[in-house]
Each structure stands twice: as C-alpha cells, then as structure tokens.
Write a protein that binds this DNA or RNA. Structure first.
Length: 259
DNA sequence: ATGGCCGGCGCAGCCGGA
C-alpha cells in the first residue's frame, strides 16, 4: 500500500498537476494540505472519475485538508480534538480497511507560527500540544497509524540547506523542535529518517531562486506508529515534482507499507 | 552582486505563506 502526503498550495490552481500525478503514480491514499477551498467547491468530480474517494475538511481562502483513497473509508473524523473554538481546518483522519485489519491515516497542516512570539506562535504551540495528546491516545489503540502532513518543523540542521537562515524562524526555534521531538518520543517513527540519513528537502520557496539553488527545507513528514513502522518497505521524497510547470512549493512524500 | 513568488479574493491591491 502506497500512502503519500502533499501540500498542494491550492487544489484549484493545482488541479491539472494533481490529476496527471494521480494517473502516473497511482497512490492508494493521498493526504492533501492547503487545499484553500470550501468543501462545496472542492473539484471532487474529476478526482472521483480517476477512481478515488474524496473526503475534505476545508474553509474559505486558507488552510484546508483532504484525504483521497482508492478504498472507501470506514470512518472519517474532522478537526483536531482539544479546542472546540478552533475554526481553522487543519486536520482530517480516516480509517481504511487494509490487510486483515485497518490502517488509520491523518492529514494535518500544522500552523506555521511566524512571527515568533506572536499570537500565531502560541496557537502553533498549543496545536502541537493537542496533536501530542491526540497521538498518545491513538497509540494506545496499537493500530497501524500514520500522522502525515505539513508539520512546518525543520527537525535538525540536516533538514535545511542553510540552517543559519532559520534560527529565528518559527519552523526551527528550539521550543518548536522540542515539541516535535516530544511527539516523536511517544514512539513514532519519522519515515524518511528511518530509511535515509541524507538531506531530503520537501519545500523550496518560490522566492529568491530557492529551487534552482536547492535552498530547501524538510518540513513535510510521515510519523508512523510501531505497528505501521513494522510494515515499512520504503519511503522517499518525490523531488522532481518541484520542477513541473505551475508546481506547488512543496513536493509529495511517500511511504510504501507491506499491508 | 543583488534580488528575485504565488494563490485567493475579486477586479485592486492586500493578506498569508515559509
């Protein structure tokens, strides 16, 4: 089973790319972030025509996440628990039949939090705490679980071409990296780091020639429960997608599971 | 050497992103 996460930076602006990519790559489950669409305007018909089920959790203009899948989900949950007043659409979870059991997959878009010290940064940290509590409760189920998405966290120096440029950025501040490490320390496996100790950037800014200079960062991650990690065959970043016409600034990150 | 963008909204620039 092939599962992939991709921040597409606007599903309507990226629809032609998305359809070609789906046909060429045939993923089983796709976690999308930054769809920037309300549910009613998500272009579900052309995606369904390719054989995918579509589940969205969107809002107007910003944010928004979705799950595309070849197999119909048994259950869908929208929104990250822990704050009923949170109106930002950043989390959707699906439960899918797989093998003799299920696989549980979440598509998440963690708040950027810049500038540091702002209300946005405190919202980011509180969201990370909620994600930590959610992951802890899900891990008690002892199921194959994937928490996939745009974490907006650069975990370590190796995950940036120029780490010095990021020292005052919310993506690389010690408190954000500590929150990331605390999440991983629950017993989750960073799929890319499990298979590679090389730089594997997933984002290159549109500005300042970041892509031609390979000035990238690794901020899109798949975290696997022990039950999912045991089934890990392969993980990789699909870097070449960044070179497409009208590319997103993020690229797809894949895992293949023996399930 | 320096600076360099893009999507959404909505029809002009501004907001948000990382």
């Amino acid at each position: 089973m092939k599962i992939v996460t991709w921040n597409i930076n606007g599903v309507k602006a990226r629809l032609d790319n998305l359809l070609v990519w789906l046909e060429q790559n045939q993923p089983d489950i796709v976690c999308l972030q930054e769809i920037k669409s309300v549910d009613e305007q998500f272009p579900r018909v052309p995606i369904e025509t390719l054989g995918y089920h579509v589940e969205t959790h969107g809002q107007k203009s910003f944010n928004g996440v979705a799950l595309l899948s070849r197999i119909s989900p048994e259950e869908i949950n929208r929104g990250l628990p822990g704050d009923a007043t949170d109106k930002q659409a950043r989390f959707i979870e699906g439960v899918y039949p797989a093998g003799k059991g299920i696989v549980r997959v979440a598509s998440l878009y963690l708040p950027n939090g810049n500038p540091a010290g702002s209300d946005k940064y405190s919202y980011r940290l509180s969201w990370m705490k909620r994600l930590h509590d959610f992951a802890a409760s899900r891990l008690c189920l002892e199921e194959p679980l994937l928490l996939a998405g745009d974490y907006n966290v650069i975990p370590a120096d190796i995950d940036a071409k120029n780490p010095d440029e990021w020292v005052k950025d919310a993506l690389f501040l010690p408190s954000a990296r500590e929150a990331w490490q605390s999440l991983v320390n629950l017993g989750l496996t960073d799929a890319i780091r499990a298979v590679s100790s090389e730089p594997d950037y997933t984002f290159w800014d549109y500005q300042a020639g970041a892509w031609p200079k390979n000035n990238g960062i690794r901020i899109d991650h798949l975290l696997l429960s022990p039950e999912a990690s045991d089934m890990l065959i392969h993980a990789f970043v699909q870097k070449e997608i960044r070179g497409w016409e009208k590319a997103s600034d993020h690229v797809p990150v894949w895992v293949e599971l023996d399930i």
